[in-house]
């Protein structure tokens, strides 16, 4: 089975590092193909890399996650986007859903939380 390619959009370096560490435990299934540190970069990287899934932080400089989700979905309606945020409020949930997000993961999370949601989203195809 082909490894699923993942783009991580996240402004905190320690978060990017940790997510890579976690995904290393599932090397057989997932491969991190790139990083972006803000929404704008995320959109550019998406166009360039065409990953199977994007993990998207919401609170970022330059362009926030909600805007980035909209842009990416505009570019590719079939893009899979997993929101990873500490702001788990109903308003944020609704905003992300309206923008077109496909999944949500609330910070903090364990490795099992991350792998479970990824398996669920990507195991479908």
């Amino acid at each position: 089975m082909r490894k699923k390619r993942i783009l991580i959009v996240e402004d905190a370096p320690y978060m990017r590092e940790m997510m890579v560490e976690m995904l290393n435990h599932a090397k057989d299934r997932y491969e991190v193909v790139g990083f972006a540190t803000n929404g704008k970069e995320g959109v550019d990287k998406y166009k360039e890399l065409k990953p199977d899934l994007v993990t998207m932080d919401l609170v970022m400089e330059e362009m926030d996650g909600i805007q980035a989700i909209k842009k990416i979905k505009q570019e590719d309606p079939n893009a899979l986007i997993l929101v990873v945020t500490a702001m788990d409020t109903p308003e944020n949930r609704n905003m992300a859903m309206d923008a077109g997000a496909d999944g949500y993961l609330w910070k903090p999370f364990t490795i099992n939380n991350l792998l479970d949601v990824l398996d669920e989203m990507l195991g479908k195809d």
């Binding site: 560490e21 500490a86 910070k107 903090p108 999370f109």
Partner: peptide, 20 residues
């Protein structure tokens, strides 16, 4: 809220990694 929860993420995350 945001600033307090964000640093919790690596604590919880790495703890879960350690347990593996």
């Amino acid at each position: 809220y945001h600033e307090l929860r964000s640093p919790l993420t690596p604590i919880v995350g790495y703890a879960s990694l350690l347990k593996r």
